[in-house]
């Protein structure tokens, strides 16, 4: 069985600042990381590999610097890595991104696609579900746990919501969007990093490579129906009020506040 895990390299949002004049993200000096939900997707895929020996391909779309995110995926235990990268893909919104990734996935072939639920830089949670729609395959979002059904070409996915859990069975080929699971994402290993640089490769996929799988009208800025007009930092919240009171009094104050606001 072949699993493709989509990962995105994102700026570590703990370190990000916004240029107050241009309104754009200041990327210089900000460390890049694999999007946290995507790391959960990698862990889910690698756990399936541990149990069943599946072949795992890590796939990313981004500038050439995203190479390091894919090396990290290889160092965690992925078998192959592809970077979809071309100036023609630049400026893509979620539609153009999902169209491009769907094309690459079709070219590579798959039984299961795992993406993270959402990226911490855009927070849309759209790309995973859109890929499934473009490919016409079933999807199970918010996956907390994924298990292969014995003797069937299907997976049981435990979906985690704020107030409940849901178990669904999904037939392959399908797409799953992952959230943090029971086990924390594994560390890379020393031998894994050595293999990622000395033995394995990150293969580039350009627009030329994806011709026949994605249309020119669906890529990059031109293929993007949404355009960002302005980015700006959220206004700071007002000063909080500190009550130095006992626990019981604190509960009363909070309950009264919630009642005042009509929330309870």
């Amino acid at each position: 069985m072949k699993i493709i895990v989509c990962i995105k390299q994102v700026p570590d949002t703990n370190e990000v600042r916004i240029d107050p004049i241009k309104g754009t993200l200041i990327r210089e000096g900000v460390p890049s990381i694999i999007n946290p939900d995507d790391l959960c997707g990698l862990e889910a895929a690698l756990a399936l590999k541990d149990a069943h020996g599946f072949h795992i391909t890590a796939l990313s779309m981004g500038p050439p610097q995203a190479d390091v995110a894919l090396r990290e995926a290889l160092a965690m235990g992925c078998d192959a890595a592809f970077l979809v990268s071309d100036r023609a893909f630049g400026g893509a919104d979620t539609w153009a991104t999902s169209k491009t990734l769907a094309g690459a996935i079709q070219k590579l072939g798959f039984d299961l696609i795992i993406t993270g639920r959402q990226a911490i830089d855009g927070d849309t949670a759209q790309v995973g579900p859109q890929i499934a729609e473009h490919l016409g395959i079933p999807q199970a979002t918010y996956a907390h746990n994924v298990e292969k059904v014995c003797g069937e070409n299907a997976f049981v996915v435990e979906r985690l919501f704020e107030d409940c859990r849901q178990k669904v069975k999904v037939k392959a080929p399908c797409l799953i969007t992952a959230i943090s699971g029971a086990g924390a994402p594994r560390y890379m290993t020393v031998a894994g990093i050595v293999a990622a640089y000395d033995e394995k490769t990150v293969d580039m996929l350009t627009f030329e490579d994806l011709k026949g799988f994605v249309d020119e009208g669906d890529i990059g800025l031109k293929g993007s129906p949404t355009q960002v007009r302005k980015s700006y930092p959220k206004a700071a919240k007002g000063q909080g009020i500190v009550h130095e009171v006992s626990e019981d009094e604190a509960v009363e104050i909070i309950v009264n506040k919630l009642k005042e606001g009509g929330l309870i």
Binding site: V68, R71, Y187, M188, V190, I193, A196, Y197, D198
Partner: peptide
């Protein structure tokens, strides 16, 4: 440091 050593250093640091 090479890219490989930088990623190794990153692993050691995180751990």
């Amino acid at each position: 440091l090479s890219k490989k050593h930088l990623l190794l250093q990153e692993l050691f640091r995180r751990f």
